[in-house]
């Protein structure tokens, strides 16, 4: 554009540009002003800081389970029996709603460590109940097997495996 006059070609006026520019800047400014009010609802620094939990495995006998707390959530630490492991491995993956081999869900087969929150609507499943010898969620009837995989019921996914590592043979760090 070399010359501009108040009446441009195609009916576009300089005033139109000013309206759009002012409106656009106003929208960006409003969004920037709203952001802190949205963001303040996300986890605060102190909540994020409580991100790891250590668990001492000594004293958890074969076949028993303890519940640790990680980020405010229950974490099941299960010392599986040989039978538990066999049942978990001896499954046709094609039968599973969320196919995952047992070997992908453990670091050491005798220790199954997973977040004890039903993937349906967040209840805590009960151990040793249900049709597959694993866990059963009383809220809406989801059955999990000895690897914590969903087998029956409304939950869409297997129980979540949290990030964890073995510090030594008897200690793990979750998170």
């Amino acid at each position: 554009m070399t010359t501009t006059t108040p009446e441009e070609e195609n009916g576009v006026k300089r005033r139109d540009f000013l309206y759009i520019a002012a409106g656009g800047l106003g929208a960006v400014g409003t969004a920037a002003a709203i952001w802190p009010f949205i963001s303040q609802m996300n986890p605060s620094a102190d909540v994020l800081a409580l991100s790891t939990t250590e668990v001492d495995l000594e004293g958890i006998e074969i076949g028993s389970e303890v519940t640790a707390v990680w980020q405010g959530k229950p974490v099941f630490v299960r010392h599986r029996t040989e039978e538990d492991i066999e049942r978990a491995e001896d499954v046709d993956l094609a039968d599973l709603p969320d196919p995952e081999p047992d070997s992908d869900r453990v670091i050491k087969p005798e220790w199954l460590i997973m977040v004890g929150i039903c993937t349906h609507l967040g209840c805590v499943p009960l151990k040793g109940q249900g049709d597959y010898g694993g866990w059963f969620c009383p809220c809406h009837g989801s059955h999990y097997d000895t690897s914590g995989r969903i087998r029956k019921g409304p939950a869409p996914l297997n129980l979540v495996i949290p990030p964890y590592e073995f510090l030594n043979d008897n200690n793990i760090k979750i998170g």
Binding site: I38, M41, N42, P43, S44, V47, Q71, G72, K73, I117
Partner: peptide, 17 residues
């Protein structure tokens, strides 16, 4: 869900809001 809770589970931030 994390945004609604203000954490990784229902907790004090949830109760406050």
């Amino acid at each position: 869900v994390t945004w609604l809770w203000g954490g990784f589970a229902v907790d004090n931030p949830t109760l406050n809001r």
